[in-house]
C-alpha cells in the first residue's frame, strides 16, 4: 500500500467503518442507560429535579475549592487537555470542514498558530497526565489497561495531527493518513471504553443534580 492508497483508504471506507462503529455503539449504550430508567420517586419532594439537574450539568465542570486544593495537579491537567482537545478538534479549520460536511453546520475557525500552540500544550498536558497516573497512588491503584489504552488513543490524534501539520517524521500524505487513522481508532474504541463519558457524564450529572435537587440541595 502506498502512502496515497493508505490516505485514500482512511479517508474513504475506513472512515465510514469507524463512524458506523462509533454511532451504532454509542446509540446502543445510550439506549441501554435510558431504557433502564428510574423508578418514580414516591417521597415528597422538597425541591425540583429538572433545574437542579441542569445546574449540576454545568456546575460540575468547576471543582469545589476544597477538592481543587487537595488535587490541583489532576484538575489543572484535566482542564488543560480537555480544553485543548476542544479547541483543536472544533476550531481547526480543516476539522470544521469535516463537521460541516457531516453535520451541515459550520462556525468560524481560529488562526492556525493559535491552534498549534494549544495542541502543544495539550500534548504536554497528556504526557503529564500519564506521569500523574503512574505516580499518584490513587490513580495508579484505580488504573487498568483500559485507562492506558484510552490515554494513548487520545494522545495519538494530537501527536499525529501535530506532525502532519508540521510535515514531520513522514511525508504529508502518510502522516495525514496516520492522523485520520488515529482518530478512527479513537472512534472505534469510543463505545467500548470510558470515552463514553463524553456523552454519559452529562446524563450522570443530571441524575445527580436531580436526586440532590429533589431533597433541596444543589449538588
Amino acid at each position: 500500500m502506498t502512502s496515497v492508497e493508505f490516505l485514500a483508504w482512511v479517508r474513504g471506507p475506513m472512515f465510514q467503518i469507524a463512524v458506523a462503529i462509533f454511532v451504532v455503539g454509542v446509540v446502543i449504550r445510550l439506549i441501554e442507560i435510558f431504557a433502564l430508567g428510574r423508578k418514580a420517586d414516591l417521597s415528597e419532594p422538597r425541591g425540583g429535579e429538572t433545574m437542579p439537574g441542569i445546574v449540576t450539568v454545568f456546575r460540575r465542570s468547576i471543582p469545589d475549592p476544597g477538592t481543587f486544593k487537595r488535587s490541583p495537579f489532576t484538575i489543572v491537567l484535566g482542564y488543560l487537555f480537555h480544553i485543548g482537545l476542544f479547541i483543536t478538534i472544533l476550531f481547526f479549520v480543516p476539522h470544521i470542514e469535516l463537521f460541516h460536511d457531516v453535520l451541515g453546520v459550520q462556525w468560524p475557525g481560529l488562526p492556525t498558530p493559535l491552534v498549534d500552540a494549544v495542541a502543544i500544550i495539550s500534548i504536554f498536558a497528556m504526557l503529564a497526565i500519564l506521569v500523574n497516573r503512574l505516580r499518584n497512588p490513587v490513580l495508579r491503584f484505580l488504573s487498568n489497561g483500559e485507562d492506558y489504552v484510552v490515554w494513548a488513543a487520545t494522545l495519538l490524534p494530537l501527536v499525529t495531527g501535530y506532525f502532519a501539520f508540521h510535515r514531520m517524521l513522514f511525508p504529508y500524505q502518510t502522516m495525514l493518513g496516520l492522523h485520520i487513522l488515529s482518530v478512527e481508532i479513537l472512534l472505534i474504541l469510543f463505545p467500548f471504553t470510558k470515552l463514553m463519558h463524553f456523552f454519559t457524564s452529562f446524563v450522570a450529572r443530571w441524575y445527580n443534580g436531580a436526586a440532590f435537587g429533589r431533597r433541596g440541595v444543589q449538588s
Binding site: F15, V19, A20, E97, L98, D101, G104
Partner: peptide, 12 residues
Amino acid sequence: ALSIPTEDTTRT
C-alpha cells in the same frame, strides 16, 4: 476540502 471524507458520512 481535503479534510472531508471521500464518502457520504452523513448517510453512515
